[in-house]
Design a protein around this nucleic acid. Structure first.
Lengths: 193, 193
DNA sequence: TGACAAAACTAATCTAATTAGGTAAAATAT
DNA sequence: ATATTTTACCTAATTAGATTAGTTTTGTCA
């Protein structure tokens, strides 16, 4: 009977598949261990606790999202870049509902690592925004407003909070459009209030 | 030894105090029962399960938020009403971080009741928006965009995701301002695309 | 080959939710 | 007022899941 040879990455990959398939609330060490062909205490050789594992999974998710959003910005600038990045964000989260759930709910405790995991993402956004010549303060405001919209939109879609039949993508694009217009209002105002 | 005389409302009130004080993740039946001067199985006379209790707590929260936002709109119209409502939303959620956490995380399962609980809120928003003469489709888009921004903003504040020192209220107001401008773009366009 | 570290195991423990079944206070009916 | 029923509460037991302790196995490297 040969050893399986688990690694953190293999475990996280499996955990991701599980949460995306059966929902974040149904991830238990037993379910995960079964999928990996191992007994649940064995997972403690790789993670100190379930909470540790979920934290790692959250960071794993942010890294992937960061990669996708950065990819989307390559070769584009200004509005095109932003639209593409926003679409990439939406697409990733819709593909990974369970994972995104964990990305949201498990960053309560350790904000340092979370900030580190999302800093690349924010840096990318900052680079794209630099083309708009925003004042420093307005750049911060703008990033916050975009992040809020994205975060909230996906959350509401994920929880089926948009009752009726108007297209999810249409409303999303309208939202991005509104934010882009707001961005123009503050373009080139280097001494913004 | 006389009976305590619990009711659902008393239990929910206590539960709210607990989650706002020590965080949603630390609410257990034992903690709640201790606070109420009762043994944990006794709570099953009032709720079928912890999940039931949390669901009720979520709805309880939405009702209160609805009330506060409606109050904020009284005697105001158009931009003033919207600004006031948004501020009320932000204030409520900042006062009730734990409760809001549960309001977010526990509407995964029963969307019907959640929709019922938030329908009054959405109706209020719709009334205020009617002054703008938006096309039907744009009204839906607009509500979705506002909700997304509010939801996301509060979420990010709650999770300390806004690293630096620019004022939380300022960015919020900038965001509301951007959305209001976007709203004007579509004002009086009765045949919006 | 032999020794060490790591990865896996089984068995046991702990904590929290839940269930079963009993008792007594309160509410209701006679 | 008394009898009956309901129900809020209790204790004790069960279950599920995370975690810990201690052991065995396996791969690696001197």
């Amino acid at each position: 009977m040969s050893r399986i040879g688990l690694t953190k990455d293999i475990i996280l990959q499996s955990a991701m598949e599980i949460v995306d398939k059966i929902g974040a609330e149904n991830l238990t060490l037993k379910v995960l261990a079964d999928k990996l062909g191992v007994r649940s205490p064995s997972l403690y050789n790789h993670f100190n606790s379930l909470s540790d594992l979920l934290t790692a999974l959250m960071l794993y998710g942010w890294k992937q999202l960061e990669y996708r959003v950065m990819q989307a910005a390559i070769g584009k600038s200004k509005d095109d870049a932003i639209k593409s990045m926003c679409a990439a964000y939406l697409n990733f989260t819709l593909e990974h509902l369970g994972l995104f759930n964990i990305m949201q709910s498990y960053n309560q405790h350790i904000s340092q690592e979370t900030i580190a995991a999302t800093s690349g993402l924010i840096e990318t956004i900052r680079q794209v925004l630099s083309a708009y010549n925003l004042s420093e303060k307005y750049e911060v405001h703008t990033i916050r407003v975009f992040r809020s919209f994205l975060q909230g939109y996906v959350y509401l879609v994920q929880h089926d909070s948009f009752g009726n039949s108007v297209s999810i993508r249409d409303s999303f694009n309208v939202g991005v459009g509104i934010l882009l217009k707001g961005l123009k209002e503050n373009e080139n105002i280097k001494l913004g209030k």
